[in-house]
Design a binder for these strands. Structure first.
Length: 670
DNA sequence: ATAGGGTTAG
């Protein structure tokens, strides 16, 4: 072998081996043959190659065979063990070393950081006899990558105020990344100013980190400007960061545009797009993109992909699709993270399958607070308040502290199940209840009929009530027909969120149920003059593993004609059976809307009719609606379930309504 | 060194 016309010597070999990476293995033989095996630098390079690329045991054998070891030999072995996840051996070597240098200590800091053990990392960092910029960077990056933004920024302050070292580009990347986590525009600004003052040269990493920081701190324009000016630094990471920047603010169109335009995609690109759709209520699109990803074949889904996909299936109530996705993951040996299991719990409970949700929960070797919260929320949606409360008290036995979401979920569960005493106990056990917990408690009081107590609690709140608080009160007032309190709540709501049509509809329905048609007209008029639009949402039915979606007045479905035909037949049957007369006030809206060529037919009714058309007689029809179930629909579902002898399970955003033989499982709802 | 994931809500 020849390099530059001369035989490679001990100086060249280490460089060549390093440059070759894994492919350096074949050089090992040459080294021995040519007699350089005895040179300590060559030996170190070969050992390091095995420590980096494996097998680590080969490195260890070379290490053990050495009669004399340099500090670098020890350091390479320690880093190697950390790389292969062997904390015990790394620790052992560190403990048995004679002389350590700054690299040794830094390796320990990096090792513990990578494992997420920031406390141990910091212990080593603090004990270091001397620190250089790499040591500081190791600690700062550790904090940044593990979400300890606060600690990272604090340490950075220490570094610049008295650390005795100058930050380099790696430092800035870590600090900027911590700032991104904090999502604090002021801090971002001061960082940018600091960069200007110090006249820091910005490399590609720093620029991309800045892009991400701008985006996460709410300055989309600056992010885009940075992206456009990246030039040769505009790699796949920058594209992905920009895509996420758009999905974060719900601009799916711009995100998709970039996604379609980017020259190369990796798994993160796909995951960003899928998660972007999933997080913005476009679950069906999320699944479409997932299918595209599978078909494209050049990028394989990973565990992050599956989390979004499974969650999307949950939102859609698409059980067949969800099971197909889980099957795909199993067949392709995609590992399941805690988030993955949590998504499964979510999916099963959103599909009405609490047995499997509980099974997954109990099968999990490691759980986190979200696992508990998700299952508790599932119980809440199914009206199983006691299971929710019990699981919350059990959390503490498992060593988990309920967080604010736990309390929201469990109070919601109490509310749906009418568990006043249990709910009060839970509320009192919260150290410092926030405004959402008050909202839940007011909802609970309202639903059990204690409206005056609910109003008094609002007056006693230590913070300003938000719309949710008054919304709960208005809803309860409607159920209990307490027009006085209802008007009070509505007045506040019209002030806080004048654009929300739901409040107008709620109050209007309240008047309607009391036959106060003049007031109904008045509210509708106010809605019109205020320019308030009625919100609409999609309804979904899963059939044969495919999703069928409907929107109010939908005529785009291929079976649309049959659906409307069935709808009219049902209406005739309902009239013949005498339902329409009894429920005249209830169904007034339907009649009006359907007179207008059925333009206003609610999406869930269309979905149910489609279900009736395509499914086996007697089969359960499952519908998922994106918004809350409408009042007249609720009544109509009861009737249809009886007329057709079918069970209809309807899930709105957060709870299940099972209609069977003219009855509904959610008695308090309407 | 820079990019992606799960839970709450009238």
């Amino acid at each position: 072998m020849r390099v530059s016309g001369i035989l490679p010597d001990a100086f060249v070999f280490p460089i060549v081996i390093k440059a070759l990476g894994t492919r350096g293995v074949w050089l090992h033989g040459h080294v021995v043959k040519m007699g350089h095996g005895g040179d300590c630098f060559v030996r170190n390079a070969v050992m390091d190659m095995y420590a980096r690329h494996g097998p680590i045991e080969f490195a260890r054998r070379l290490f053990d065979e050495m009669s004399e070891r340099m500090v670098a030999d020890w350091n390479c072995m320690i880093s190697g063990y950390w790389r292969w996840g062997d904390e015990v051996e790394a620790d052992k070597l560190f403990g048995s070393m004679g002389v350590r240098n700054v690299i040794t200590w830094t390796a320990m800091v990096t090792g513990y950081s990578k494992r997420g053990d920031l406390v141990s990392a910091r212990r080593y960092f603090d004990q270091m006899p001397e620190k250089n910029v790499v040591s500081w960077n190791a600690m700062l990056s550790g904090y940044a990558q593990n979400g300890f933004a606060e600690e990272g920024l604090e340490l950075f302050n220490e570094m610049v105020s008295g650390g005795g070292v100058q930050p380099d580009e790696t430092t800035w990347v870590a600090v900027i990344s911590s700032c991104s986590d904090r999502a604090d525009p002021k801090l971002a600004n001061s960082l940018v100013n600091m960069l200007k003052e110090k006249n820091v040269r910005l490399n590609g990493f720093v620029k991309t980190a800045l892009l991400d920081m701008y985006a996460k701190c709410g300055n989309l324009a600056a992010a885009r400007k940075t992206f456009d000016e990246l030039g040769t630094f505009r790699n796949v990471v920058a594209w992905n960061a920009m895509i996420s920047a758009y999905t974060r603010v719900g601009d799916l169109k711009s995100a998709r545009e970039l996604f379609d335009r980017m020259p190369r995609k990796n798994v993160v690109s796909w995951n960003s797009m899928i998660a972007g759709y999933a997080q913005n209520g476009e679950s069906a699109m999320a699944i479409e993109v997932f299918k595209e990803m599978i078909n494209s074949k050049d990028t394989k889904p990973d565990e992050v992909t599956m989390v979004s996909v499974i969650s999307a299936c949950g939102h859609l109530g698409a059980l067949e699709l969800g099971n197909w996705a889980l099957n795909y993951a199993r067949k392709n040996q995609i590992p399941t993270s805690i988030s993955g299991y949590n998504a499964m719990i979510f999916m099963y409970s959103k599909c009405g399958n609490m047995k499997d949700a509980e099974r997954v929960f109990h099968e999990m070797e490691r759980k986190d607070v979200i696992s508990f919260n998700t299952l508790i929320t599932g119980f809440a949606a199914h009206g199983d308040g006691l299971s929710a409360v019990n699981l919350m008290w059990k959390m503490k036995e498992y060593g988990f502290q309920p967080d604010r979401i736990t309390y929201i979920s469990v109070l919601t569960a109490c509310s749906h199940a009418g568990l006043l005493e249990e709910g009060k106990k839970v509320f009192e056990s919260i150290g410092a209840p926030d405004v959402d917990h008050y909202a839940c408690m007011i909802d609970l009081l309202g639903r059990v009929g204690k409206l005056d107590e609910a109003k008094r609690l609002i007056e006693k709140m230590p913070m300003a009530p938000h719309a949710g608080v008054y919304g709960s009160l208005l809803n309860a007032s409607r159920i209990r027909k307490r027009i006085d309190i209802g008007e009070f709540a509505a007045k506040e709501l019209f002030r806080i969120e004048p654009e929300n049509s739901g409040n107008y509809v709620l109050l209007s329905n309240m008047y309607a149920s009391m036959g106060r048609w003049n007031d109904v007209e008045r509210i509708r008029g106010e809605m019109k003059t205020g320019g308030v639009m009625k919100t609409t949402g999609w309804s979904y039915v899963e059939y044969n593993g495919k999703l069928h979606k409907f929107i109010v007045g939908d005529t785009s479905h291929e079976r649309s004609k049959d659906i409307y035909k069935l709808l009219m037949e049902l209406r005739k049957k309902m009239k013949l059976a005498g339902y329409m007369a009894d429920k005249e006030s209830v169904l007034r809206d339907v009649e009006e809307e359907e007179k207008e060529e059925m333009v206003g037919t609610h999406s869930e009714k269309l979905a149910v009719c489609f279900g009736l058309l395509v499914s086996e007689p007697g089969a359960v029809i499952r519908v998922v609606k994106n918004l809350r179930v409408c009042w007249d629909c609720h009544e109509a579902m009861k009737i249809i379930s009886k007329l057709e002898g079918r069970e209809i399970i309807l899930r709105d955003n957060n709870r299940f309504h099972s209609f069977h033989n003219g009855l509904c499982s959610c008695k308090d709802y309407w």
